[in-house]
Design a protein around this nucleic acid. Structure first.
Length: 268
DNA sequence: ACACACTCCTGAATGC
DNA sequence: TGCATTCAGGAGTGTG
């Protein structure tokens, strides 16, 4: 599933192809993604794309009347193609440009979404989001203040978009392993120093993944992705295998409906 | 306000 | 070999 680094990588890859180009039309083969695609998007015509950005795991394309918000869900991805390339199964949307290129959205599981926002700051999906994980606003003291009065497991709060958006299951597991903190630990039992460690490690992991051109992904491996990042994973997807630090078999349990993997010895 | 279960969907993995 | 079942997972929604 695309996590923040994949979304950022996608953004950087498509940006030069889209920016200042005109949308000719939007061609939709499957309007039912997570939510129906807004009519406003389907009827866009002769609109220049003014800007492209990312907030959490949402990508946005700025047009004059508003913004297209794209979330890749679990299995979505975007690529630039030419007019001639025939659509395959699960190629749900083409954003057709006047220069003959298209932004094609492919999403087998249809957990993704295309939304319309007149204003980014007040859009309900974005306005309650916490600070960007790679920004200065996400710091140890902030995290500590956000979680100190809560009894939810720390991993659940790390994955809560209102605390910080963009840290998904992979990075939550990996960060907490490196921080030596049990994912199940009640958030109010963390001190400031724990929070500082978590913040700095999560930033480091996200930056590394962006640098590497983003992650692994079961769903993408079929797509000839080498899965190079997978070899660097400490715990995610490795339950019952030996911890890379102490050789103790990694354990797993479900936390907030998510697979959670940890080392019972290295994490406390 | 918080905590947590439920929901959408399909491909891959597993079981028989 | 093939069919059926299970699982994974982001994040919005609903319930207590």
């Amino acid at each position: 599933m695309p996590e923040l680094p994949e979304v950022e990588t996608t953004k950087r890859a498509i940006e030069p192809w889209l920016s200042n180009q005109n949308i000719d039309k939007v061609h939709c083969r499957q309007p039912q993604l997570r939510w129906p695609i807004p009519k406003k998007i389907l009827t866009l015509k002769n609109q220049p794309i003014l800007n492209i950005g990312r907030r959490g795991k949402y990508l946005w394309l700025e047009c004059e009347p508003g913004y297209i918000l794209i979330h890749l869900g679990m299995s979505g991805h975007l690529r630039i193609i030419t007019d001639k390339q025939p659509a395959n199964k699960h190629d749900h949307i083409d954003l057709c440009l006047q220069n003959g290129h298209r932004l094609r959205y492919h999403d087998p599981r249809r957990f993704g979404s295309w939304l319309w926002a007149e204003d980014l700051t007040t859009h309900p999906r974005l306005q309650s989001m916490g600070p960007e994980p790679l920004s200065r606003q996400f710091h140890g003291k902030y995290l500590w203040q956000m979680i100190q009065s809560r009894q939810t497991p720390i991993k659940t709060l790390l994955m809560n978009n209102q605390v910080v958006p963009g840290i998904g299951n992979i990075y939550a597991n990996e960060t907490l392993f490196l921080a030596g903190i049990m994912p199940t630990r009640s958030s109010n039992l963390l001190n400031l120093e724990d929070c500082q460690r978590i913040v700095s490690l999560s930033k480091k992991l996200l930056r590394q993944a962006i640098q590497a051109g983003a992650t692994p992904l079961k769903d993408f491996r079929a797509n000839h992705q080498p899965g190079y990042f997978q070899q660097q994973l400490w715990v995610y997807g490795r339950h019952d295998q030996p911890c890379k630090r102490c050789k103790t078999p990694l354990e797993s349990e479900t936390l907030g409906q998510r697979r959670t993997v940890f080392c019972p010895k290295c994490q406390v």
